[in-house]
């Protein structure tokens, strides 16, 4: 089974260190990992570094992959408005690195992904005419159609309505179980992380604050130190842990050191 390990991974933009010393235990396939952290903490940078778009120190180790290109990356939407139907834009993602001839197998794959994400109805629409949420679903399709074993998704649910957020995360969770994928999802909704993620990675100020099983990492202390919120995690009447936010903690995330030491 595929696995991903980060060893002292760092990255710099124009001389400025934006990511330093990110070391994780081996993250095996078959789980959904939530990447958490405040705005500007370095989540997207970490994805770009793992995917190979940024150079830097340290080592990104992918083991046990059975395909030549095991990684896929879904970046945040950039608002481009190409004259292209949804179907073509997904086919385009699959055809990269292949010949100019589209085979029937390519069509089978595109149709499978359209059905998987339940966006078959969008296939004839122009990408530029879609809503933000629809574009996000197309972005997820473009990543999934590459048949990755490790999938990095940068805030794939940020523009989705609540039911589609749940649909997408549940689908991703199912894919980790059924196909042994390792899916890392950057997200801001800690409630979703508690509910769907097997493990979480927390980034603050360009370094890893914590990495481990969701229940162990997402704690009241972490929420106060990293996200500057006063919150509780308590079981609801159904018994599952829920996040209750009381307000700002106003400690201006002075340091994450304490948590980093204890993690």
């Amino acid at each position: 089974m595929v696995s991903l390990t980060l060893n002292a991974v760092s990255a710099a933009y124009g001389g400025r260190q934006v990511l330093s010393g990110v070391t994780t235990p081996t993250l095996p396939g078959g789980q959904l990992v939530a990447l958490l952290g405040p705005n500007g903490a370095g989540k997207s940078t970490l994805f770009r570094r793992i995917f190979g778009l940024l150079r830097g120190g340290g080592e990104v180790r992918v083991e046990g992959a059975t395909v030549p290109r095991p990684l896929a990356y879904m970046p945040q939407d950039n608002g481009a408005r190409p004259v292209m139907t949804v179907y073509e834009s997904i086919l385009l993602a699959r055809m990269q690195g292949r010949g100019l001839r589209v085979t029937s197998k390519d069509h089978v794959e595109v149709e499978r992904i359209l059905d998987l994400l339940n966006i078959r109805a969008l296939r004839g629409r122009h990408v530029g005419d879609l809503s933000g949420g629809q574009r996000q679903m197309v972005g997820a399709a473009q990543a999934l159609v590459q048949n990755p074993e490790i999938l990095l998704m940068d805030e794939p649910t940020s523009a989705l309505d609540l039911s589609r957020q749940i649909d997408l995360l549940a689908l991703l969770h199912r894919l980790t179980r059924e196909q042994g994928l390792l899916i890392v999802v950057a997200m801001h909704d800690l409630g979703h992380a508690l509910r769907f993620a097997d493990a979480v990675m927390v980034i603050g100020d360009g370094s890893l604050v914590a990495c481990g099983a969701t229940g162990d990492v997402v704690t009241t202390d972490l929420l106060r130190e990293v996200f500057d919120v006063a919150a509780r995690i308590e079981p609801c009447s159904m018994g599952s842990p829920q996040l209750i936010v009381d307000g700002r903690a106003n400690c201006l995330r002075a340091n994450c050191q304490q948590i980093r030491r204890s993690a």
Binding site: P75, P82, Q96
Partner: peptide, 23 residues
Amino acid sequence: LARRGWQLTAMRLGDAKAESMGV
């Protein structure tokens, strides 16, 4: 230019998206 067909088409989705497709 034809040899780069898929890559050039992907460029119209924006640099970030093209990069994510391996361009």
